[in-house]
Design a protein around this nucleic acid. Structure first.
Lengths: 337, 337
DNA sequence: ATGAAAGCGCTAACAA
DNA sequence: TTGTTAGCGCTTTCAT
């Protein structure tokens, strides 16, 4: 193994000089700089992570806490993970995967063992057992998602309230008066997952403001559940002309179910979804949608964490504005052509 | 921070004794053992990961190399990742996520920096640039998947050749004579992803052995591509009565496309899939399928790696046998009822 | 069965 | 601008 003393000897400098060249923590003459860099390159030197962590109390690793709960759309989670990993590498950090089978104990373990410098926490529940712990842990953290009580925590996410509002707003402007939100499976609401609840709140609030008739229903991503939901909705609300679907795997099933029940899209029923663009574009009828900007969220989460690691304060709340892309699934409400 | 000397003092022993209690590397009297363990518990001691790694040259971290390439079904990858993470924790190891944006350099970085003890490499290509490197790296590794030339490497995967064989075999025994395999998107074949190629090889081999007419086609997971594939297949092979689909996202699209083209499932067309059970069960017609045992593969991969870390030799090749579950999508070939 | 002490490879005062 | 050196917290010989 090539170590810092080897590099130093070959460059004719002291080990500390090599260390300083690497960290940039003090100014080095151009000549020395060059000789050290050459020596590093020629020897293929790479600092021993453990030694560095021990001496500097910085591991250059951050933990990504990804619970892998049921009812959560996996590809979207994965997109977050990929974005976080990429961004972390851009800041010279690696990413440790915590699947949260360990629960809060895993977080404590990270803090005590100094394995990581900070935490990025995904799939935050409205009432999340981890948040009190995160507040007291001597480890900086950034949450992707918002708990009900976010004081003292750094959180970032798509503004789901605004997303719900934007979706109904779009339908309202097209003249729809009776609308429904079809969301995540019941378990997700029961857990109190923030994004699900917030979308519903935004949806309901604006619908009421516009004096629209509105309903919110959870939905299992099975063909049977989709049919049942569609049929029930059409029976209870014969005037229904617009739906918002916030449930990726159920989207195609629901569209199929409504069509089967005799509703043409968009002539009889306008559909807005909250889902990745790729899914929206590939549906039987391309769907008007608000995308979840996973890449941006992941990247900014890492940036927030790095800023905190450098001892600089960051805003507690970062909300990204939704962007609605109109596609073929929505149209003005009126007598069907 | 609680350190080993604190624990030792409280227990009235030397630091080395605490270390030995933790590692079990020498016998300790029952009394001492109890006092040390109590001290650890009371102080909430957890060893400093960096210090431990430096002194022992073992980080207790393993890297999961997950390229996140296009055309790969994300939920299945994630299931692998989850299984690996869980299994690793069971062996007192953590998992570092390497998304392979860094390519081979990332592997080298792991080796040089001593950040991890070993590698689990996913999404292995038939001709994979990483394999020569893995052979020479002083870091033990286990590949999930098989390169064309696997000598000197430890590999584990579902036996995809047998999977392909099992799928045609099932159709053959039901009397089908003209069959097709619809696989991953073209890019996956072009890259030479092992599992795609091997399934095709098994499929073709057995089809030929039984004297069946067989075709292999890649398939994009878009509605348009699915239709085109179905139409073209029916035009070129009017006698087609059975298909095998090895492409998760395309499965529902293909079934829909064939039905649209007038083929009833299973009366006119039998369908076998290679995909997670959940997907197979939830299709419009539940699909006869071979599941990918991601949990078992992930767990066994970790076990293989741990064994190697302990200096014990392991078999180079581990192939898990496919298990085909018959469902409603396949039936005997004959005049439609 | 236990202790003492020498590092592991690096960083960051402290000196010059 | 650079060098010297004292640790960082742990493991593991070597002694007893």
């Amino acid at each position: 193994m090539v170590k810092i003393t080897d590099v130093a000897r070959r460059a004719g400098v002291s080990p500390s000089t090599v260390s300083y060249v690497l960290s940039g923590k003090r100014s080095i003459s151009a000549a020395t700089q060059r000789r050290v860099e050459a020596s590093i390159r020629e020897l293929g030197y790479r600092p021993h992570a453990g030694a560095r962590a021990l001496a500097s109390s910085r591991s250059n690793v951050l933990a990504l806490v990804m619970p892998l709960r049921s009812g959560i759309h996996v590809p979207v989670q994965m997109q977050f993970a990929g974005a976080v990993a990429t961004a972390a590498r851009g800041h010279d950090h690696d990413v440790l995967l915590l699947t949260q089978e360990e629960g809060e104990d895993g977080l404590r373990r990270m803090a005590d063992s100094a394995l990581v410098d900070g935490l990025i926490v995904m799939d935050v529940q409205l009432s999340d057992a981890r948040t009190p712990l995160l507040r007291t842990l001597p480890l900086p953290s950034v949450l992707i998602g918002f708990p009900a009580e976010a004081g003292g925590l750094t959180c970032i996410d798509l503004d789901f309230t605004a997303t719900g509002e934007s979706c109904v707003g779009h339908l309202a402007h097209l003249g729809h008066r009776c609308v429904a939100l079809l969301g995540s499976p019941p378990e997700v609401y029961v857990r109190g997952t923030g994004f699900a609840r917030r979308t519903a709140a935004g949806f309901t609030g604006v619908a009421r403001r516009y004096g629209m008739t509105s309903t919110v229903l959870p939905c299992e991503p099975s063909r049977a559940a989709a049919r049942q939901t569609a049929d029930r909705l059409l029976r209870d609300h014969p005037g229904l002309t617009g739906i918002v679907v916030h449930n990726e795997p159920a989207l195609p099933l629901l569209m199929e179910a409504f069509q089967r029940a005799g509703m043409r899209i968009p002539q009889d029923l306008s559909v807005v979804a909250v889902c990745p663009d790729e899914l929206a574009e590939n549906a039987a009828v391309p769907v008007t949608s608000v995308a979840i900007p996973a890449d941006e969220v992941g990247e900014r989460a890492v940036e927030l964490l790095m800023t905190k690691l450098n001892g600089v304060a960051v805003p507690e709340t970062t909300l990204l504005s939704p962007r609605l892309t109109p596609r073929a699934s929505t149209t003005v409400c009126g007598p069907a052509s």
